[in-house]
Nucleic acid binder design. Sequence first.
DNA 1: AGTTATGTACACCGTCCTGTGTGCTTACGG
DNA 2: CCGTAAGCACACAGGACGGTGTACATAACT
Lengths: 203, 203
Amino acid sequence: MSELEKGPQGRRRGRGARERILGASQQLFREQGINRTGMDQLCAAAQVSKRTAYQHFTGKDELVAEYLRRFDPSVLSGVFDRTDLTPRERLLAAFDIPPTTPLCPYIAAAVELHDPQHPASQYARDYKKAVAARLADTAREAGAADPEQLGEQLALLIDGAAARTRVLNADAFPTAAAIAAVLIDNAIPATAGDDRRREEVSS
Amino acid sequence: MSELEKGPQGRRRGRGARERILGASQQLFREQGINRTGMDQLCAAAQVSKRTAYQHFTGKDELVAEYLRRFDPSVLSGVFDRTDLTPRERLLAAFDIPPTTPLCPYIAAAVELHDPQHPASQYARDYKKAVAARLADTAREAGAADPEQLGEQLALLIDGAAARTRVLNADAFPTAAAIAAVLIDNAIPATAGDDRRREEVSS
DNA sequence: AGTTATGTACACCGTCCTGTGTGCTTACGG
DNA sequence: CCGTAAGCACACAGGACGGTGTACATAACT
């Protein structure tokens, strides 16, 4: 039989070593960082032989890249696909992250790996662009004058809150949410709302 | 002769090994990151014997902490002490960083070291708080309604721009500056409209 | 059955890392 | 001038790291 994908959902019969490895990665890379987590420790935590790990992933680099790919469903989709909220509420919901998230792992990976060519760094870039695009879509849906600009601005606020939370060890997302509310109200001209301020589009 | 301070300005007669070490640290830690820069390489770049390096610094940790302490004069003071600018212009000038700065080294250090107890991490926290305080002072000088809040908001914007610039490999400071302009104008009650300032806010 | 993919146990390699020990040379100050 | 602090050259310890080789056990599918 051909060497078909053993990728994301491709474990054909195994007892699920790949999933355990990725699960341990989620925990350890977050708690300790990528560089400070050795493969020995990771395999021990996953209850997986080291040999098996290197049969699933060609190297640590690939494992790190795959580890990053396991965040989209929980964060990105979980916020934007909520139809129970108005577009404006959805934009603000992006700042309601529970304290379970120490720091955006994409920023952490980009800083730790320190190599823009690394697969994980490239994926982090793609992810950040995707988030900004989703924010822009929602901004357009909410009737923003310049959705792309608002999306980029909100994305910057999220990253700022993440970075600041990490450095200061104190939640910075409420501050970011406050800024977001101002930006959103400034960018949406005719929103039905209490405070409708002078709509000036900063050039 | 007693073991008196060989600290910041304490090289008594030497040929300046300490300064060369710190100079090389500035360059290498920025270009390659902290964890990816070995002491061997650093000493070679500084043209300093490894033994000498470990006589000036008890370990790499202390060197990293000292390396972070060498940024205040160039960044923090360089922006806030410009008396040729109005307070509002000074707030915005904090976002005019030249392309020489790849990423705020404090964020990088906090992420790379990954230990809030590390001296360098503690110093990074102090520095971030100090910047926010300086921004708040300037915001107060500019007549902001809630200077502390504005200072914290602007600090968050700076960190967001730094993080985003790093991850995306694209300058995000203009976006942050645009947000800052909106926040500043919203926070300063009397300064609406164009550049009508000069109402001296006596300190 | 029996073959084959999957996983295990464990030792091992080479490399890089932080950090030392030791002896020698240089330059400054009195 | 001489003494001494500053710096140098070099080897090496001790450990963590990423990654591999080998031989063996188990599960699954036909």
